[in-house]
Deep mutational scan, measured.
Amino acid sequence: KKKREHFRQLLDETSAITLTSTWKEVKKIIKEDPRCIKFSSSDRKKQREFEEYIRD
């Protein structure tokens, strides 16, 4: 659960993310961040979390 919170925090702090951002764009920006790396090695899982984040 904590990894998820850190991942969401990373998304919060990434000012380039807007409601129209695509995962492909965002992934390029955040892929080097340790919170992104630690969250999951599964790209699909990160994408799902990102899409949920955008909906919230």
Rank of each mutant, 00 (worst) to 15 (best):
K1V: 15
K2G: 12
K3T: 02
K3N: 08
K3P: 06
K3Q: 10
R4H: 14
H6V: 11
H6C: 12
H6Q: 15
F7V: 01
R8G: 05
Q9K: 10
Q9V: 01
Q9F: 01
Q9C: 03
Q9H: 05
L10C: 04
L11T: 03
L11H: 03
L11N: 03
L11W: 00
D12N: 08
E13F: 04
E13S: 00
T14A: 07
T14K: 03
T14H: 05
T14W: 00
S15L: 10
S15C: 11
S15W: 04
A16D: 14
A16M: 15
I17S: 01
I17K: 05
T18R: 03
T18G: 09
T18K: 01
T18S: 13
L19Y: 08
L19K: 07
T20N: 13
T20I: 06
T20C: 08
S21Y: 03
T22E: 11
W23H: 15
W23E: 10
K24D: 11
K24I: 12
E25D: 11
E25F: 01
E25Y: 02
K27D: 08
K27A: 06
K28G: 12
K28Y: 03
K28S: 13
K28H: 11
I29E: 11
I29Y: 14
I30M: 01
I30W: 06
I30L: 01
I30D: 09
K31F: 09
K31S: 14
K31D: 12
E32C: 06
D33V: 13
D33L: 15
D33Q: 05
P34W: 06
P34Y: 04
P34D: 15
R35I: 04
C36W: 02
C36T: 04
I37M: 12
I37L: 09
K38P: 01
F39S: 03
F39Q: 05
S40M: 01
S40D: 11
S40C: 09
S40G: 09
S41Q: 08
D43P: 02
R44T: 14
K45N: 11
K45C: 08
K45T: 15
K45L: 13
K46W: 06
K46T: 05
K46G: 05
Q47W: 00
Q47M: 05
R48Q: 14
R48S: 13
R48F: 10
E49W: 05
E49R: 00
E49G: 03
E49Y: 06
F50E: 10
F50M: 06
F50N: 11
F50W: 03
F50A: 08
E51N: 08
E51V: 03
E51M: 01
E52P: 05
Y53H: 10
Y53M: 03
Y53T: 05
I54E: 11
I54Y: 01
I54Q: 14
I54D: 10
R55V: 11
R55G: 12
D56I: 15
